[in-house]
Write a protein that binds this DNA or RNA. Structure first.
Lengths: 135, 135
DNA sequence: CCAAATGCTTGATTGGATAAAGTATCGGGA
DNA sequence: TCCCGATACTTTATCCAATCAAGCATTTGG
């Protein structure tokens, strides 16, 4: 029994590879690693804790410590102790961080460009198929 | 002007994230890093050169030297000088390498499972949409 | 025959990821 | 109140991935 990869699976691999490569480029074009860009992405106006970020990024808390440390050094996020519970650090994106995050999003043209190749009906189809595969 | 992310773009991000995470897990469940699994993947019965792999993996040749070195240490690939041009190294996957690669493919159930949620018509639709976005 | 180009490796540095151990703080019982 | 365990984060160590610059061996072309 040979695990033969179907054409659809191959297309998925190719699409994901291209998507990932494009995100890497968008990040590095703006002086960030992909991991740093991913860390910046989910930060809202709210404060976030280190563990919350670790949960979102699916990684260890000590990893977040390092990445947030580098982002903080560059003034892209702030890290302040929570007055209510001094074990907790509140992480917030700074105006500079917001600007850079927007620049990365602007550079990351891949999804926009590729989705734009589909007409309205096809976009709706794709949304439906993705919803089914993600549910 | 705010770059508001459309729902479809968000779905793409979510799908790609899940896909990547699943591939990481499949690799690490078999004792490989994602980069090592990616290096093993394209090796056919043919011999491959280091530069060829660097081209496929979109990375530096010296990076390939390291990764292939680790794979060779574990007996998953062989690296022999090309008799016709002794600058060139011929990289080939070993039987052990093949076995492990198949194990990774087997562990990487994500694409199979998710595609299986679509009926035949939908799979055909998806293939069409991906082809359009990849062309 | 030699100079430039090619193919790969080495060495150095940076960053990401994980695990184990450590610190500080909080919270709930005895 | 005093601890003890749990929680939140950091530190340290280690490994791997990635890139760059430099280097070596070999090949190729003038």
């Amino acid at each position: 029994m040979v695990t033969r990869i179907g054409a659809l699976e191959q297309q998925l691999w190719d699409f994901v590879s291209a998507y990932d490569a494009a995100f890497d480029r968008a990040s590095e074009d703006n002086g960030l690693s992909a991991a740093q860009a991913c860390t910046l992405t989910p930060l809202t106006g709210e404060k976030h804790t280190m563990s919350e970020l670790a949960g979102l990024l699916l990684c260890d808390a000590s990893n977040v410590t390092q990445i947030v440390g580098r982002l903080e050094t560059r003034g892209l996020v702030s890290r302040t102790p929570d007055p209510a519970d001094r074990r907790v650090k509140q992480v917030a994106i700074t105006p500079d961080g917001r600007r850079l995050r927007r620049a990365v999003a602007k550079s990351f043209t891949f999804p926009r460009e590729r989705v734009a190749r589909l007409d309205d009906d096809e976009q709706e189809q794709l949304a439906h198929l993705l919803a089914k595969m993600l549910s």
